[in-house]
């Protein structure tokens, strides 16, 4: 970032917030259905690697994204089956997924690409040319039209998820499954099946979010999800388990990341130390939010 401008900052914030927002929206399904979405982190990492691997092998970014989505979903499905069919604790199974993902990625990466490190791919595409022209608009131009394809895909997926929560029977049914009373049972709904579906949606969303992370960098870097899955989980609670709030919290974190990155451009700024700030700020926001809620009730 040679010349730092406000519009570019907005664009960076959106780009950083989008994957978190998508994963958080996905995780919202699981949370609404009454289960914990601990495995977002693992799904994201698996998605990132699968996207890079598939793009490298097939040369098609579209297939890469599809693979990312599939990998995230597979991880979540594993958690869902362990929790809902084998009776495992969903928190523990989620942790297992988060331990599994990096190990599996490393093993596969070594087997396929003969490296445990960075896997570069250059087939990820930029946004369509027509759109690129609009990127010259002030403030919102770069944010809305100057992003790479991954961003638009995320926006699309996020819209789709929000739509599913808000406009289809599934959203209501998931919510009922998460209720403490027997509403779902009395309505003849299969709670366990609904939860599995919710896990899968969350995994797919997180996988796609991971793919877009990789697309943004143009490579897979081990550990590149770096806690974003957990942040997505925090965003769900910070956002009060409502889609709009979750989006707000996610992009809030995205902008904190963008702010930290932008501050790194300043001379003598402690680059990595600034990256710690978004986490601390989120923790403080969470505490303030909870304290305020406690005073209300």
């Amino acid at each position: 970032m040679q010349s730092f401008g406000f519009d570019l900052f907005v664009a960076a914030g959106c780009a950083a917030g989008a994957p978190i927002a998508l994963a958080a929206l996905g995780g919202l399904f699981t949370e609404l259905s009454g289960a914990l979405s601990v495995a977002l982190e693992g799904s994201m990492l698996a998605g990132a690697f699968a996207a890079v691997a598939a793009t490298r092998i097939t040369g098609s970014a579209a297939l890469g994204f599809a693979a990312g989505l599939g990998a995230g979903l597979a991880i979540a499905l594993l958690v869902a089956l362990c929790a809902e069919r084998l009776g495992a604790d969903v928190f523990v199974a989620g942790l297992a997924a988060n331990i599994l993902a990096p190990g599996l990625v490393s093993v596969v990466s070594e087997a396929v690409f003969k490296t445990k490190g960075v896997v570069v791919v250059d087939a990820f595409m930029r946004g369509p040319q027509g759109v690129m022209a609009l990127a010259k608009l002030p403030v919102v131009g770069p944010a809305l039209f100057g992003q790479n394809a991954a961003f638009y895909l995320l926006a699309l997926a996020a819209a789709l998820l929000a739509f599913v929560v808000g406009a289809t029977p599934l959203g209501n049914r998931l919510r009922a499954a998460g209720e403490r009373n027997e509403a779902a049972l009395a309505a003849g709904l299969d709670r366990s099946r609904l939860r599995i579906i919710a896990h899968c949606l969350a995994g797919a969303a997180a996988g796609l979010a991971g793919a877009s992370l990789a697309a943004g960098v143009g490579a897979f870097v081990p550990g590149m999800s770096s806690g974003r899955g957990w942040i997505a989980l925090v965003a769900i609670y910070l956002g009060g388990r409502r889609p709009a709030g979750v989006l707000l919290a996610s992009f809030g974190f995205g902008f904190l990341i963008a702010l930290a990155s932008a501050a790194q451009a300043l001379k003598g700024a402690p680059a990595e130390l600034l990256l710690a700030l978004p986490y601390a700020a989120t923790a403080i926001a969470l505490i303030i939010g909870r304290a305020a809620r406690g005073r209300l009730t």
Binding site: A176, E179, N181, E182, A183, A186
Partner: peptide, 13 residues
């Protein structure tokens, strides 16, 4: 149709 002691309606809807 049951009208139970403990509600069978989903609170969030």
């Amino acid at each position: 149709g049951l009208v139970p002691q403990h509600s069978l309606l989903a609170e969030g809807l």
